[in-house]
């Protein structure tokens, strides 16, 4: 079943067209990786799906429902779509657990006591049980990024968007974050990633899309896209990064 569907999505910043008619279907429980050079439009596309950026043209459907109608209240949609950023963006003045509980407390009007058990279980699940009371600057990059993932998950989203979440990490910390993504995929989460981790995309993704200049040049299962790319631009890109 199609969970998320993009139809001819166009996003411009001034005269600069960042997404130039992108169409894409993401099935429920599927992991889709967006690859491509910096500036290809991967991050912007994710921000558009989360309604952090309004799109100029096209439609975005979540469960068949158009979420890109101009003037639509973005809040209820954002609750259903979690997002994790390259620079973690944890709130530096709150402990890890406060970071995680803020949105459910305010949006779902739940008390700390009500939330505590499920939030603790999430911290536990992602190996952060002893980091709940730490402030972000007391955590390593990998731990911060995992807290950011827990924070997004605490809203019980149906889709998760990951915007180059390992790009700012020291190489030895990348593994622990990718491990979390595998865990999430196994639990059936629908996920979209913008990533430079080709090895991970090749091994874990259900579908890989190669973006260039705001267009999807080629898409397909990783076995095809990485082993037998048909488009010369894809081949050229892969030759440079692999």
């Amino acid at each position: 079943m199609t969970k998320l569907s993009l139809r001819d999505v166009v996003k411009r910043f001034g005269s600069n067209t960042v997404c130039d008619g992108i169409s894409l279907d993401v099935a429920e429980g599927e992991m889709v990786c967006l690859i491509g050079a910096s500036g290809a439009g991967k991050s912007t596309l994710l921000r558009c799906i989360n309604l952090l950026e309004p799109i100029e043209d096209g439609e975005i459907f979540l469960d068949g429902e158009d979420i890109s109608i101009p003037g639509l209240d973005p809040m209820p949609v954002r609750r259903r779509i979690g997002m994790v950023f390259q620079s973690y963006n944890l709130f530096p003045h709150m402990t890890a657990i406060e970071n995680v509980m803020l949105a459910p407390r305010r949006v779902y009007k739940k008390s700390r006591q009500e939330l505590r058990p499920e939030v603790e279980a999430l911290f536990e699940k992602f190996g952060l049980a002893d980091r709940m009371e730490h402030y972000p600057d007391q955590l390593s990059g990998g731990q911060q990024q995992r807290v950011a993932i827990v924070r997004a998950l605490a809203m019980k989203p149906e889709v998760m968007l990951f915007d180059e979440i390992t790009a700012a990490l020291d190489p030895q910390l990348v593994g622990e974050v990718l491990e979390v993504l595998r865990l999430l995929k196994d639990s059936g989460m629908t996920m979209m990633l913008a990533t430079h981790e080709m090895g991970f995309a090749r091994e874990a993704a259900d579908k890989v899309c190669f973006l260039k200049d705001g267009r999807i040049v080629e898409e397909g299962p990783p076995s095809v896209l990485f082993e037998n790319p048909t488009d010369p631009q894809t081949r050229e890109f892969l030759a440079r990064v692999l």
Binding site: R79, G82, F85, S87, M155
Partner: peptide, 23 residues
């Protein structure tokens, strides 16, 4: 990016200012 993070969680504008930006 702090505003983006707060908004992506579905926090309202006023909650974003009160709990994330102002402190």
């Amino acid at each position: 990016s702090q505003r983006s993070a707060a908004e992506s969680l579905g926090l309202s504008e006023s909650d974003t200012i009160r709990f994330v930006i102002l402190p």
